[in-house]
Write a protein that binds this DNA or RNA. Structure first.
Length: 548
DNA sequence: AAATAGGAGACTG
DNA sequence: CAGTCTCCTATTT
């Protein structure tokens, strides 16, 4: 974890700014979503090198009569390039191409971030003349963290804070919606962006809950400014957990945190504090963080040549270690169960064995096998609701675990890092594919268990593939996402990328959107897909029952 | 310029 | 033969 202090800014506030153009080599965001900070060991382990940055957005009053205080927790960010961050033509019109295009912030990668937007406008904004929105901190790296207002808004002192929890792993996709929602209500209406892509990770809280969180954030922020007492972070995440629990259980009040029976592996890993010595972590001295190097001699850590080498060492050591362990765990499980690391490749038998294994691991109640007689490609398209419908008690945990696996496999493709522990044969690893290979692939990998490898996704249908992409917004949300999950309406945000992914999956290097869309149009006749009533560009709709 | 629409033939499992 | 893939022309946004 490195604190990059933005020396260009003449603002007084110390800042935690990710390096510009930073492209993390891996997407650990999914992991981060399920990462339960309450697992972290107590006592002197409060020396962990977690950093909290708070940065603010300042929407103009006229577009935000009821300001929201939104909180984004994320401990990593997706490996998305800046050119993926297209906020749309309306946005560009308002902000000008320079701002929206090149100055969109690099992903704020390291640490755990608390985002509290819409507090107050900074009258001293150096870019204030550019647009009324220029104090929007996320749009201007130069002042990205330059304002540091109290969460207790003095702009709207009487408005009840409405707190939203955004998934850490859907930072960009949700952020687009967030921006549109918060700053362009009209635009939102027009395009139906009001529906949230991921209800599991998005919730509104009651006023009292909001105030609790805001109070807490206020304490954290005002006391510590850029560096935050780790206990406070823990506390905030416990609250966060409570809120999520509350949301999931449908209760309206904050409930005492239940002892968790999930994340066992992480618990064990994190209980072991030897990593502190290993990484020379010292109490609260974030300045020293610059010097922390990830001493991971393992050649599995060979970095994607196109990635930013510094990024590797910038990633929070704690998360890194846990992720490492998670990776090993998944590998081991693959070996034990003889299944592919790619859940979408699983046969129905694989699915069952994985479910059984996970159920045992977490001490969950037994599943009804009949409910789970599905292939891996179907499994990965299930929502959390689908999971809980089939397994009311354990659905959420199973879903979360599957998300981890999905992310893990995606990460595997990213940097060829997903090699089993004892197998360094490496399959002539020269094929570290291009920089943007953060996607699923079905490349034959000799290091993977051979069972259930031959068949599978080569026969996948386009509509299945699209649903697969849609099922992992944290990974593919930048190129395709649900607009209305219930109605099966989705939007292709990046046609080139989606086509490339499809071509990769089908081993058709010449695939492009022209051809892909032709295939989609074939679905019109077949009743698999249609255009929406009010036809919008790149927006399609699954017909019933394909939308399920 | 990019997306949409759909005809038509080729390819593949 | 189904399901694309490919190429194409015309039209719309």
């Amino acid at each position: 974890m490195v604190l990059n202090r933005n020396t260009n800014s003449d603002e007084t506030m110390p800042q935690t700014v990710p390096s510009a153009g930073f492209t993390p080599p891996c997407d650990y965001s999914n992991f981060a979503d399920t990462f339960d900070l309450s697992l972290l060991p107590g006592g002197d382990t409060s020396t962990l090198s977690l950093t909290t940055t708070l940065y603010t957005n300042s929407p103009p009053p006229m577009t935000c009569p009821k300001p929201k205080i939104s909180t984004t927790f994320y401990s990593d960010s997706p490996s998305i390039k800046n050119n993926d961050l297209d906020l749309g033509p309306d946005f560009q019109k308002l902000l000008g191409p320079e701002l929206t295009k090149t100055q969109y912030p690099a992903s704020p990668v390291e640490g755990i971030y608390l985002e509290v937007p819409s507090i107050k406008i900074n009258p001293n904004s150096p870019t204030g003349s550019l647009s009324p929105y220029s104090t929007h901190s996320l749009l201007s790296p130069n002042e990205q963290y330059s304002t540091f207002p109290s969460p207790n808004s003095d702009l709207y002192p009487n408005s009840p804070p409405e707190v939203s929890l955004y998934s850490p792993n859907s930072y960009y996709s949700d952020y687009q919606q967030y921006v549109k929602k918060e700053f362009f209500p009209a635009y939102v209406k027009e395009e139906n962006y009001l529906s949230c892509s991921n209800p599991v990770n998005y919730t509104s809280l009651s006023t009292s809950q909001s105030r609790d969180l805001v109070d807490l954030l206020g304490n954290v922020i005002i006391k510590e400014e850029t560096t935050v007492n780790f206990d406070s972070i823990l506390q905030s995440f416990q609250i966060n957990d409570n809120l999520l629990d509350t949301y999931k259980s449908g209760e309206s009040q904050i409930v005492p945190q239940k002892p968790k029976n999930d994340h066992q592996l992480l618990r064990e890993v994190l209980r072991d504090t030897s990593f502190q010595k290993k990484f020379n972590i010292k109490p609260f001295d974030f300045g020293l963080m610059d010097n922390i190097k990830m001493e991971v001699p393992d050649d599995r850590d060979i970095i994607n040549p196109c990635s930013d080498e510094l990024s590797r060492e910038n990633i929070d050591p704690v998360l890194n270690l846990a992720i490492e362990q998670m990776r090993k765990d998944v590998n081991n499980t693959c070996a034990v169960l003889c299944i592919s690391p790619d859940p979408s490749q699983w046969t129905s038998a694989n699915v069952l064995s994985w479910l059984q294994w996970t159920t045992n691991q977490f001490g969950l109640s037994n599943l009804i096998a009949d409910q789970w007689n599905i292939s891996g490609s179907s499994l990965v398209t299930l929502s959390e609701e689908d999971f809980t419908r089939r397994a009311p008690q354990s659905g959420s945990i199973l879903y979360a675990q599957l998300e981890i696996w999905k992310a893990a496999f995606s990460e595997d493709d990213l940097g060829a890092q997903w090699l089993p522990e004892n197998n360094s044969s490496n399959a002539s690893s020269g094929d570290v594919s291009e920089d943007e290979d953060e996607e699923m692939s079905t490349d034959v990998d000799t290091t993977k268990p051979t069972t259930s490898r031959s068949t599978g996704s080569s026969h996948i249908h386009l509509w299945q593939f699209l649903k697969e992409l849609l099922a992992s917004p944290q990974i593919h949300g930048s190129c395709i996402r649900w607009i209305d999950r219930a109605k099966g309406i989705f939007k292709i945000e990046d046609s080139v990328k989606v086509a490339r992914l499809w071509g990769k999956r089908k081993n058709r290097p010449a695939m492009n959107y022209d051809k892909l869309s032709r295939s989609i149009r074939q679905y019109y006749k077949k009743g698999i897909m249609k255009k929406t009533e009010r036809s919008q560009r790149l927006v399609y709709q699954f017909c019933h029952p394909y939308n399920l």
